[in-house]
Amino acid sequence: MSNASSLSLALRIWRQRHDEPAGRFLTYRLTGLSPDLSLLEALDRLNQQLLLEGERPVHFEHDCREGICGSCGFLVNGQAQGPQSGSTVCQLYLREFSDGQTLTLEPWRARAFPLIQDLAVDRSSLDRVLMAGGYVSVNIGSAPEANALPVGRELAAQAFEAASCIGCGACVAACPNASASLFVAAKLAHLDLLPQGQPEAAQRSRRLRERMAQEGFGVCGNQLECAAACPKEIPSALISRMNRHARS
């Protein structure tokens, strides 16, 4: 962690155009960075420089810049969403790094996440997994009065925590098998824990797990790297829960 008022960093970044079969690392040096900048803001500054020098800017996904939309994410020194636990790369501030440090930035690598360009990958496979049944099948207009069905405070809190997954894909990137088990387990827990989701629980579990395999995600090997990388700190116990229910 840096207390310096201004930092220099070397960014070693994976560059690969959408139509190139292979990429390479290029190193860029940035000086005079405020420790109050986020890593993405440092990339903004780099891109501005590249543009003025006639180079192609680094492509990366981003949007809300407050850690909730789930758009951003890449490997920072080998860690999905970077070294700080419980945060996305847009919430990673330069004060976490030391002056003169080299940061290696590379895209997530998983069969289900084909490369788009540079640091961006295509994660639409996650949406296709949800399409298989990650919802309560209720049509608009047919809901009972909201307080008709009480839900215990603890249960609602647990469902909320599972539902706080932002679908960024860091769990897949961190997993040696590129499994989406944590993502799927979180959605199953969110909906199964609530009485509204229970009628479809068994079918939902089967369909989501089938679709996960179809989309090219691997199987869980219990290494639990997913939970360590998750910016929302979704617990790996949800995977155990999913597997327990799948057997019963």
């Binding site: 309560v136 608009i140 405070r153």
Partner: peptide
């Protein structure tokens, strides 16, 4: 406004609850 809450609860939105289970 009230129907929106009814519908979102039915969709599985995990709103904060009281100990008795009400919203």
């Amino acid at each position: 406004s009230g129907s929106i809450i009814d519908h979102c609860v039915a969709l599985g939105v995990p709103f904060a609850r009281e100990y008795g289970g009400t919203l």
